[in-house]
């Protein structure tokens, strides 16, 4: 019984490791995906991705993505009224189009990888 439980733990750990890698190396997609529904600051994004995926994206990997997406015109940033401490990001119309396409392509890619692996 102990061995089976260890096996499950191992599988879970291993699965978590792959999810961690996938999210970290494709963080731009996950960041844009998180911003589809609502505007968020860097702090909110890190917390959101951690609570939904159990993956911690460090500050040094998230804020540069926000910076570059903003400079490319895909994100709009503003300081929220009454809270000058946090800069809230939202998708621009151009950013929303790109985000939707990226999410669709990313999901397709994952499906294809899954098919390839189950052959």
């Amino acid at each position: 019984m102990q061995n089976i439980s260890n096996l499950f733990e191992f599988q879970e750990e291993n699965c978590k490791k792959f999810i961690d890698r996938i999210i970290k190396s494709n963080r731009e997609v996950f960041i844009m995906s998180s911003l589809v529904e609502k505007q968020m600051c860097g702090y909110d994004l890190i917390k959101e991705i951690f609570s939904s995926c159990d993956v911690f994206l460090s500050q040094g990997t998230v804020y540069p993505v926000l910076y570059t997406l903003e400079s490319e015109g895909l994100l709009h940033a503003e300081y929220s009224k009454g809270d000058m401490r946090s800069k809230k990001y939202s998708l621009t119309p151009k950013g929303r189009k790109i985000a939707e396409k990226e999410i669709e392509d990313f999901s397709k890619a994952l499906e294809q990888v899954s098919v390839l692996l189950s052959r």
Partner: peptide, 20 residues
């Protein structure tokens, strides 16, 4: 933005600069 949203104690700025 990073420093306004996080406490300095939560940031290892040398490591973070490497990640940036």
């Amino acid at each position: 933005d990073m420093r306004q949203e996080w406490m300095d104690s939560e940031l290892d700025l040398i490591k973070t600069t490497g990640e940036v």
